[in-house]
Design a protein around this nucleic acid. Structure first.
Lengths: 473, 473
DNA sequence: ATGGATTTGTCCGTATGTATG
DNA sequence: TCATACATACGGACAAATCCA
């Protein structure tokens, strides 16, 4: 064996054994030391390199652990034979490369009428902090292990209680499943029901994101046109779908509330065909003027309705908690199927939410937010009326955190949105919520008002009017 | 209605009304009391059960509040008609019996050697609280809206930095995806890659939960037997799989480290077949004696390795954060495919974790935990040696939070586990991690030591020895 | 072939400067 | 601030493998 003395730098930041380890690893990987070679003995090397025995030993042990060397007891360390190392580039140097440069934020529009932004000023930060702290204190034992796969029982009990009382949902804690989002929940149902549900009906227009989830899971998606009062049950019948996705509380995007008669027809469809109804209680909490309508699930007598909802609008979209209420037959399958998955929601956050509900903050908060959003909606309605008058008509006023503006202009929704952006206002075309071509005579745009103050709303609408109808007035 | 008199135990720890509540709840959920049944009147029941009126009343009120009963004024309490309770299992579905649903406390084994429990006493609760509070303060603006779909950028940057430095992973923040768990990540990859990956190879024995996820997504799963140093690349080649799932840092469950030669063979397989490698860096942080070994992904030069790991062992399984590092070609597909999904992890918790990493707590914590678990492992090894001597041999010592005990007994792993449970000790057979029949000559059981103190470990092992080998000594 | 000298990996107690809490 | 713990480095003790007279 020729000379093979690594040059070590006592001054270097890297430890001596680290330098030694790296030297030999690179010699081996580059093929300069061929397989089968006996490395210098510990004692020999420590003398020639001028370091202690254990320094060499530590380096050799590491190479041994990683499989570069094998040790023959009291004989020596040998480079493993198993593979030809020649030609492998040396590993990238460890350590720091670049500084963290957060990606350049796109120029945020001054007035963003997004439908999912909430009113931050009303978020009960203090209370939420308290709940989090108490959760960490009271339930610190939870941190050691996975929790209930369906969600912490006490949280599910609180959700069930709330749903029974406020949303007329029939629910016991055992039916409730807690998850991280509506789309995730729909995805999990797709996988669960894939064997039985090949064809799923959705509202046309409807929630495009949900449609994509169905499609990604290989389901055939049938658009069922909306009538005045929700989707056409007649056409649903003809579709041959095994499941239908509906938003009876507040149709997305058009905002109609499904009347009781149509709800009964829908349930009758389910009963007679054995079909499943996936009820998204979208914006159910925020209903203005009109009386609450019982949830579809609450009217159901045959366990055909899967009820889904979330805390994104009423609490925060950043908190990532949704819930499902499953009928018995689906629940049994769900439990068996998702047996191996830990619940995806942080246990502490579940506990915080549980405390938030248990202490009555939730109901208080909902009541408060109803007022807040009612005022914002009023501001938006008034601004729209004042600025646009007959140039637009307004849909989806009964509930929710957005309106639909039907604009009497010879332009597409996309064009109008682009014009708006140029003026610093972001509004949202609804065309992607159609599977077929959008049919309304005039373009319709979605304007969410949750994240803007009444003043911002008024200013935004003024800008919008000047951008869209510069000549009027 | 026939006699229905619960037997109450005045001496029990549980309150009388609690026992009553639980009794009826279980009767209803199990279907032994059918929907619509009138329960015995308060007065009647309090006489027959020998308790006071208010005890019964409290129990009924609780059941009422939770939706099991409805009260008809001046008539009585009835089991609700709406939900068909028949067939609801009171106990959680098969699987983790140690997950306690509060109303029905399962008998927790005194010494639970579960592989995923962490050392709670070492959890940095104070620091974590501080991070959470600061996150809520500093990033309260995040609460108004959804975050980055891949995870908050600064968190991904911190994860990338850590992985580069400590795990020799080649990672920039743009490749990192944050999620709620390893299985969820694998599931999302299945959906994403379904078109290209029909057949996936896994280690035999391997991680059964992961196998089930693959199967649920319709992939054909090919078990590839383990050799001394990890799965057989020869047989992998012959399998025709388009993807392989491996745990090179610490094979689950047997604990071997994949040596460099086999890593290169594996990468060569990927290069020559265009296959993908899914590297789960399982327990990579907890290596005893030598430093952690570099990742497989770090050796890859062709973007064939998907790297996945999580914070469950090293921080807490209750916190639900995992991460993936995707090769660029996969990353592009991922972004396009999951475009509509909000990131499932709570933004505040992401921020807290980000601060935890940024302030160096993470590296500190890892170093600390390595010591803690090293001590526990030593205690377990010593106890096993003292109690069992040659009656067992020990595998998987190099790393991780568990050992494998090969028990020289003419019984199956399941039998041994059952005997252990009867003695108050829970250990885990490994047979379900095999697809084919388990081949080892002797039964092998998994003993996790993360959640037990050295004393508990010793006591548990003593009990185990007496239960398994009562005649020896 | 052999026995003793030497070399070798392995184990272990210790010293020291640095980082940690 | 200070005590402690830790990573790193050092060298002695031991026993097995190897070498060689």
């Amino acid at each position: 064996m020729a000379e093979l003395i690594p040059i070590l730098d006592e001054q270097a930041a890297e430890s001596l054994y680290g330098q030694l380890y790296r030297f030999f690893r690179e010699e081996i990987l580059s093929g300069r030391i061929v397989a089968g070679t006996k490395l210098p003995s510990v004692r020999h090397l420590c003398r020639s390199a001028g370091v202690s025995k254990s320094t060499v030993e530590t380096a050799y042990q590491q190479l041994l652990a990683e499989g570069y060397l094998e040790s023959r007891a009291r004989s020596g360390f040998y480079v493993v034979e198993a593979v030809d190392f020649a030609g492998w580039d040396v590993l990238p140097a460890e350590g720091e490369a670049e500084v963290v440069t957060p990606p350049v934020a796109a120029v945020a529009p001054r007035y963003n009428f997004h439908g999912s932004v909430i009113d931050l000023a009303s978020f009960p930060l203090g209370v939420w902090k308290k709940c989090m702290l108490e959760a960490m204190e009271r339930y610190q034992g939870d941190l050691a292990f996975y929790g209930d796969k369906l969600g912490e029982y006490e949280l599910r009990a609180e959700i069930a209680r709330y749903l029974r009382q406020a949303r007329t949902v029939q629910a016991v804690p055992e039916q409730v499943v807690v998850g991280t989002g509506l789309l995730q929940a729909v995805g999990s149902l797709c996988l669960l029901l894939a064997a039985d549900v090949k064809k799923v009906a959705i509202e046309e227009p409807g929630y495009a994101d949900v449609r994509e989830v169905f499609e990604q899971h290989g389901m055939e998606v049938v658009p069922v046109p909306l009538e005045e009062d929700g989707l056409s049950v007649q056409l649903l019948r003809e579709s041959g779908a095994q499941m239908v996705y509906v938003t009876p509380a507040h149709q997305y995007p058009y905002g109609m509330i499904m009347p009781i008669a149509k709800r009964m027809q829908l349930l009758e469809w389910a009963r007679s065909t054995g079909g499943l109804i996936l009820e998204n209680d979208y914006d159910g909490e925020f209903r203005y003027k009109v009386k609450p309508v019982p949830s579809l699930q609450g009217l159901d007598q045959h366990g055909s309705v899967i009820y889904v909802s979330n805390f994104s609008k009423a609490l925060s979209p950043a908190i990532r908690v949704n819930y499902m209420v499953l009928p018995l037959k689906v629940m049994e399958r769900y439990r068996a199927f998702y047996q191996q998955y830990a619940n995806p929601v942080s246990r502490i956050e579940q506990r915080a939410l549980q405390l938030f509900l248990q202490n009555g903050h939730w109901e208080r908060h909902i009541r408060k937010m109803r007022k807040v959003y009612e005022r914002k909606q009023a501001a938006l309605l008034q601004a729209v009326e004042e600025e646009f008058g007959d140039l637009v008509s307004v849909l989806a006023q009964a509930a929710g955190l957005h309106l639909i503006l039907e604009v009497k202009a010879e332009r597409s929704g996309e064009e109008l949105a682009a014009i708006a952006v140029a003026a610093g206002v972001k509004v949202y075309p609804t065309t992607r919520n159609w599977i077929g071509a959008a049919k309304p005579a005039w373009p319709r745009l979605l304007l969410g008002f949750g994240g803007l103050s009444p003043e911002e709303i008024r200013e935004g609408i003024q800008l919008l009017r000047h951008a869209w109808f510069p000549d009027e007035r």
